[in-house]
Design a protein around this nucleic acid. Structure first.
Lengths: 351, 351
DNA sequence: CTGAAAGCGCTTACAG
DNA sequence: CTGAAAGCGCTTACAG
């Protein structure tokens, strides 16, 4: 007995739609409709098909479906790193919204390397993502070109920038740090220092530094280069930087330290405690993020809170609306961080 | 002029392999080979094909490729939540290894709901994941059945259990907490309390509690039901629980508090500070995870460290090895947590 | 080394 | 409401 087909291709071994059709005694078209457009199939046939599918334990092959329908029900997110809970929360929000809507999420981390981000975006595009969310704007133009040329909806998250050419859902980093610095100025501080994470390939940090400068220069002030510490976003670097800043003479030493995030500020506060210094008596300090520990710490850390999960949720919803054709493009959305005034920043003393 | 084909199907509009073939003056088979099996194509033709592809900005359609080759180059990971850095680090490790090997990663979060985990796993299976990593063993049997019946390699991460029917890469939660409890016993403690996260659908927490019981019962001890606090894994719950435990009379009050993780222990330590109590003078306490802040905190927290990124890396490598056919199945691997002895746990006083 | 063509598992315009 | 069949964009056994 010779095999029917000249070209044997093996097959996946998985049960396929055709077998369901045979068992239910209908055409393949009807099986497909029973699942995808149930209204177009009579109730009795629908039942027969679903029973057959269940009995055979059939799961549709997504590649076949995607090829025929040109839909994948896949979305993607590219973030700098999961080692930062800020982005983790964002992904978490996106993931749940996408999942509720039948979408599965690809996750890529660039590790702050734009080329890596582009590589992962390309991989996702090749796999047919129907939408993409990327953190921040520091990406190669090729990334946005690829998205635009294929008409794939996307959104820049975390950063919000009125002047951005991209739809974005997030907050204005510059305005936030201007506001925080203004707060310190209003407390009477005139000598400032900064402890920040690296701004390489990071538009958010650049904007934050600009915000600080905006506020200071409006008051005729600035941060001396040697008083702006930049390094890894760890408790250790925060602690070291604080120690260094405190070696300045009393007359030149900053009374207010603006930190790029809570982790750095917390590190500084821990170093302070070890050296017998105390905020706000001896200095004032601020963070950003409002980590769970920041309000519980002693002294409570003055900082700003952004609902990152919410950013993820909004981003996913916007993308889904565009995919569904409910709106032509993603609507930009500005989130306003909440200022949390606590004990770590107080009135400037003894000038 | 009538269209050539009777059944117009639109097409995706994207440039396809066929156009590359036409431009390079070769067959579609050759284009495919030039990319997937370059050795089988002469250098000159290979160049021509790649130039044509670049000029047309062609990106292969993954659905077509997947359908024909029955490979998707997609892997999946299902974790309880990203709101916990432990799992975030694990995903981070997996993601980078998969990415380096040309795999894109689906991410799903169950939020500690087994049905949700199963739903996401099904979605991933439908989309053709070639391998799956799931945290822990608390999943519906259907999940493992689906994996096994299709021969899709998978691994249980984070938990390691010699008796498990599944390949697993992680640590023995029970042994770890037995070890920690033994340490406290060796310091002379005889009255114990516990502050733990909920153990619903969470085999890790169940094992941890068992580990504590193992050690205590070997010493003829146990934790009274009212001294075992279980609740959300927050600083707040840690703090509240500590306060409650300290309301016991001096004669019955626990001298050692075993916490399910660092967060709970840190919350307790903060509450202690506020009420003027101090470890190890007034009580001893231990955590698990060794968060960045745990070593910097005062007192330093005695805890255990697990390299979660490493677990993710190992899991991904094992899965890739099976996919590549280098080994028949995933090799289980036990990671041993490192005990970090610090100031929060000291000798028992005044009994 | 290269090509013609079958086939992967679905969906959907067309016809009834 | 239902079916026959073309087509989605690739890969790969076969033949040369």
């Amino acid at each position: 007995m010779v095999a029917g087909s000249k070209r044997a291709r093996g097959g996946s071994g998985r049960v396929k739609l055709e077998e369901v059709a045979r068992k239910a005694n209908v055409s393949t078209a009807t099986v497909s409709r029973a699942f995808n457009e149930p209204d177009k199939v009579s109730e009795e046939v629908r039942r027969r098909v679903k029973d057959a599918a269940r009995a055979l334990n059939w799961i549709p092959n997504a590649a076949g479906r995607a090829l025929a329908s040109r839909r994948t029900h896949i979305a993607g997110a590219i973030i700098p790193t999961l080692d930062n809970e800020i982005f983790a929360h964002q992904v978490s929000g996106m993931q749940s919204v996408f999942s509720e809507n039948g979408f599965t999420l690809f996750l890529g981390c660039s590790n702050y390397d734009p080329d890596e981000g582009l590589k992962q975006a390309d991989a996702m595009l090749a796999r047919g993502v129907e939408a993409l969310a990327v953190v921040g704007e520091s990406h190669p133009p090729e990334l946005f070109d690829a998205l635009n040329s294929r008409g794939i909806p996307y959104v820049v998250t975390y950063s919000y920038n009125k002047a951005s050419p991209h739809p974005c859902i997030g907050f204005d980093n510059r305005a936030a740090f201007r506001r925080m610095t203004d707060h310190l100025l209003s407390l009477g501080h005139r000598r400032f220092a900064g402890i920040f994470q690296p701004d390489t390939n990071n538009d958010r940090v650049k904007e934050r530094l600009r915000g600080v400068s905006d506020a200071l220069s409006a008051a005729g002030l600035d941060i001396a280069a040697r008083d702006l510490m930049m390094g890894p976003s760890t408790l250790e670097f925060g602690a070291e930087s604080f120690a260094t800043l405190m070696t300045r003479t009393a007359e030149t030493r900053a009374t207010a330290i603006v930190c790029g995030n809570d982790n750095l500020a917390l590190g500084a506060l821990m170093a302070a405690r070890e050296s017998g210094l105390e905020a706000p008596r001896d200095f004032s300090i601020t963070g950003f993020d409002d980590l769970a520990i920041s309000s519980r710490f002693s002294p409570g850390l003055t900082t700003m809170k952004v609902d990152n999960q919410q950013i993820g949720v909004l981003a996913a919803k916007e993308l889904l609306a565009v995919i569904a054709g409910e709106q032509a493009q993603v609507q930009s959305r500005e989130i306003v961080p909440v200022l949390k005034l606590r004990q770590s920043a107080g009135a400037a003393r003894g000038r």
